[in-house]
């Protein structure tokens, strides 16, 4: 038995941590892209900001895109509710709220993550220090995950933590693909040609899988290959299929533990069915953008149902 508030706190703590990590990844992908480009094209930064869902906030504050502005906006800008520092801050507030449900190691890991980042992000980050900063973020969030994995009882508290992680991740992966859907579209110009090298690289880097993609597909990069890998591959830990399966499994655990199924279970089954019945031809027939839209709203709906079914709030 656990408090609904505690379940909600764990869920959001891990959602925010996952968000911080994904934002760092995205930022790194964009930065690399900017570095390897010869021209001054800022469009990649625009698409990074859009993927992170920070477009409105950024435009409200700045008139133009410069690397240093974007970097600091994503890392530490108080006006940006989704910046990494704010996400980590919220993760830690939630951790404080649910301290009684965390092992000491998990609590210490998240507290140290917060303390170190607060220090590292106290002042604007120079491009020279960006690599180290991003590394620190990835490293500290990984320690939290490691502590969770290594010390937490595999009970309902663990299930809610994992649900938060995978729902956030699914949402993130879907948005990365969605922002890039136009480069993946099979247009007459693209048929038989490879998509822009840099474009596919940024997609794979954003989900940390440039290496694993090659293990699966060799050096053959194609729109079909990428979409089927990032969307449908069960082995890929950030793919939509993988995340959905994890969500279904942890909900299944809760159903067993509590002896009852609810709306969120139905919704998770529906998501899985949708993914299982989709093949790569279907994706392009239905339209990638349309399909991703449905999947994003599936995940949002599921998150809401979980909140309700497990009484996160009054």
């Amino acid at each position: 038995m656990m408090l609904g508030k505690t379940a909600g706190g764990l869920f959001w703590m891990f959602r925010y941590l996952e968000r911080a990590e994904n934002t760092a990844r995205l930022l790194e992908a964009g930065w690399r892209m900017a570095l390897t480009r010869a021209d001054d094209d800022m469009s990649e930064w625009v698409s990074i900001i859009t993927t992170a869902g920070m477009h409105d906030g950024y435009d409200a504050k700045f008139d133009e895109y410069t690397p240093s502005q974007v970097i600091n906006f994503m890392l530490r800008d108080k006006d940006n509710p989704s910046c990494i520092m704010t996400s980590v801050d919220l993760a830690r507030s939630n951790a404080r709220l649910v301290r009684t449900a965390l092992t000491l190691e998990v609590w210490e890991a998240v507290n140290e993550c917060w303390m170190d980042l607060k220090k590292a992000l106290a002042r604007p980050v120079n491009e020279r220090d960006l690599y180290d900063t991003l590394n620190l973020i990835r490293n500290r969030t990984a320690v939290v995950r490691g502590a969770l994995h290594g010390t937490m009882l595999r009970n309902d508290a663990y299930a809610f933590s994992r649900l938060g992680t995978f729902l956030e991740r699914a949402d993130n992966t879907a948005r990365i693909l969605d922002v890039k859907y136009y480069v993946l579209l099979p247009s007459p110009a693209h048929i038989g040609t490879k998509i822009d090298n840099a474009q596919w690289e940024v997609i794979l880097r954003s989900v940390s899988s440039e290496r694993s993609y090659r293990w699966v597909n060799g050096t053959e990069t194609s729109a079909r290959g990428i979409v089927s890998f990032v969307m449908l591959d069960q082995r890929m830990p950030r793919s939509l299929a993988f995340c959905a399966k994890q969500v279904q499994d942890y909900l299944g655990f809760l159903a067993q533990e509590y002896g009852t199924r609810s709306d969120s279970h139905e919704q998770a089954d529906l998501m899985i069915k949708r993914i299982e019945s989709t093949d790569i031809d279907g994706v392009f027939k239905t339209g990638l953008h349309e399909l991703l839209g449905v999947m994003i709203s599936d995940a949002t709906k599921l998150s809401g149902l979980i909140e309700k079914d497990f009484r996160f709030y009054e």
Partner: peptide
């Protein structure tokens, strides 16, 4: 906290996941 609690059947009760 306050928002975890309510009175039910004449007793103080806490809102759990169940």
């Amino acid at each position: 906290e306050s928002n975890d609690l309510r009175i039910e059947d004449g007793r103080v009760a806490m809102r759990t996941t169940q």
